[in-house]
Each structure stands twice: as structure tokens, then as C-alpha cells.
């Protein structure tokens, strides 16, 4: 455990989120075991590991999406900008606006493209009027690299787009509320290689503006998009460090075995 705390403190200067001794339980079953980690503001952080290692569960505890699962319980402390997000005074709605999320399967609302992006700003009262809202929608779609493809059909249903476009629409929806952190739970696993490349390119462009945490099965993807990588195995954080170091010179044999494809 001492070692893991050390691992967690290896992050760079601008720390956005910190997790300290976090464990997550589903009923009596422990899914994440005593993990401590720092998430840098300027980097893309990747969580890798074999299926069932707890990386998605751990990610979902960063914006308290685990609250929606009955019997799920989180122990330990997670901070956003020094604020404990599990404190009793924390407003979950506000937290989720500050820590946005993109899911594995593209899940646009069955509404128009415009409504999909405008929904968040509207419920949080971020736009003063129609023109301000239009601006937010356009800016978000531009940042998500979707504007040129959909600008002439904003009233079409979001579900009529292709899978890759839907996922970029979901990213546009997440950034429309101007979050500080974006959590991505295997955002490209349901997409073809071309759409995946576009999403990865988009992650590059968004880096620096938002702290990004991405869970991925695909080690090449982690190597391509992230600066920091955390390797999880059986609910434990095995190793956390610079992506280049993890992939070229892992300290732990388990990490090395996984990266070289010995299991996974």
C-alpha cells in the first residue's frame, strides 16, 4: 500500500483530481482495492488492464455514477480541486457538470442533434438566450470536430448519425457544459478503425483544455493518446507512470506480461 501511495504521487504539477485509498464494493464483492492516484490537468490519463480489473468502476467513481447502482459503495477519498466529492455537502448534479462523461456505447438522446448538445447548457442555465445557446452548440460541435458534417442538419435526430458521429456528438454534449474533467469509458470500443482514429485525434485536440481520463482495452490506443498510464489488475493499481515509461520499461513484471500480451 505504501508503494501504491508513492505511485499515486508521481503525477505532474497541475493536479486536477486526487484519489486516496479508494475501494469500491458491489455488495460484499470488492471491485477496486485501495487505489490512490493523481490526475493531471494537462495530460490524458489512460487506465488499462484486463477485463474485470475494476478500471471502469474506478472511473465511474470520479463523477459518482456508481451512485446509480444499487449496493455499490465507495470508500476512501476523491478530491476535485481539493474538494471531497463524496462529502455530504457535495451537489452531485454540479459535480457531474464539472466532471463530464462519455460512455462505451454511443448514447445520444433520441432528439435532434441541436437538442442533444443544448440539453446540458439549458438545464444548468448556462446560456442567457437563444443566440447564446446557438453559440454554445456551434462551439461544442466545432471542438468535437462534428460541425462541418452536421451544420446543415442540426434538426435531424442524433440517432440517425453513424456510430462514430454519434460518439463525437456525445463528446460535444459533454463539453457543452464546459467541464473541467472528461471521463471516457472505452469511447472507441464500439467503433470501426476510421471512426476510432477520429476520436483519438479529437482527444489530442481536447488535451490541455480539459483533464481527460480514458479507460481502454486497446493498449496501442493508450500508447497513442495518453501521457500517463495506470495499469490495473484484479482491482489493484499495479503501476502508474508516464506512458512512454510504462510501455517501454515497466517496473512490474505483471505490467510487462500484460503489455507483451502474455495475458489479458
Amino acid at each position: 500500500m505504501k508503494q501504491e501511495t508513492e505511485l499515486g504521487q508521481q503525477a505532474g504539477q497541475n493536479i486536477m483530481m486526487t484519489a486516496r485509498n479508494v475501494s469500491v464494493f458491489y455488495g460484499g464483492k470488492m471491485a477496486v482495492n485501495d487505489v490512490s492516484i493523481d490526475i493531471s490537468k494537462d495530460d490524458v490519463t489512460a487506465f488499462i488492464g484486463p477485463s474485470g480489473c475494476g478500471k471502469s468502476t474506478f472511473l465511474r467513481s470520479f463523477n459518482r455514477m456508481n451512485d446509480t447502482i444499487p449496493n455499490a459503495r465507495v470508500e476512501g477519498r476523491i478530491e476535485l480541486d481539493g474538494e471531497d466529492i463524496y462529502a455530504s455537502g457535495m451537489d452531485v448534479v454540479q459535480l457531474r457538470a464539472r466532471v463530464g462523461m462519455v460512455f462505451q456505447k454511443p448514447n445520444p438522446f433520441p432528439k435532434s442533434i441541436y437538442e442533444n448538445v443544448a440539453y446540458g447548457p439549458r438545464i444548468h442555465g448556462l446560456a442567457a438566450g437563444k443566440t447564446a445557446l446557438d453559440e454554445i452548440v456551434q462551439r461544442s460541435l466545432r471542438r468535437a470536430g462534428l460541425w462541418e458534417e452536421v451544420k446543415d442538419r442540426l434538426t435531424d435526430s442524433g440517432t440517425a448519425l453513424s456510430g462514430g458521429q454519434q460518439q463525437r456528438l456525445c463528446i460535444a454534449r459533454a463539453i457543452a457544459v464546459d467541464p473541467e474533467v472528461i471521463l471516457m469509458d472505452e469511447p472507441a470500443s464500439a467503433l470501426d478503425p476510421i471512426a476510432t482514429a477520429k476520436i483519438e485525434e479529437l482527444i489530442h485536440e481536447l488535451r490541455g483544455r480539459y483533464a481527460i481520463v480514458i479507460v481502454t482495452h486497446n493498449m496501442q490506443q493508450a500508447a497513442r493518446v495518453s501521457q500517463r498510464t495506470a495499469f490495473f489488475h484484479l482491482g489493484n493499481l499495479v503501476e502508474y507512470g508516464d506512458t512512454s515509461q510504462i510501455f517501454t520499461n515497466p517496473r512490474e513484471t505483471r505490467t510487462k506480461d500484460y503489455i507483451t500480451g502474455r495475458y489479458g
Partner: peptide, 22 residues
């Protein structure tokens, strides 16, 4: 589908907004 609920919760909709909007 639960994914619609997740999507709405993910952008910070409250429970009642999830129910009535989606």
C-alpha cells in the same frame, strides 16, 4: 434503455429531470 439515463445523468441532469425529460 439505461444508457439514456446514464447519458442524462452524465451531463448533470437531476433525477427528476432524467425522468421528465427523457
Amino acid at each position: 434503455p439505461p444508457s439514456i439515463r446514464d447519458a442524462a445523468l452524465g451531463v448533470g441532469a437531476s433525477k427528476i429531470q432524467v425522468v421528465f425529460h427523457h
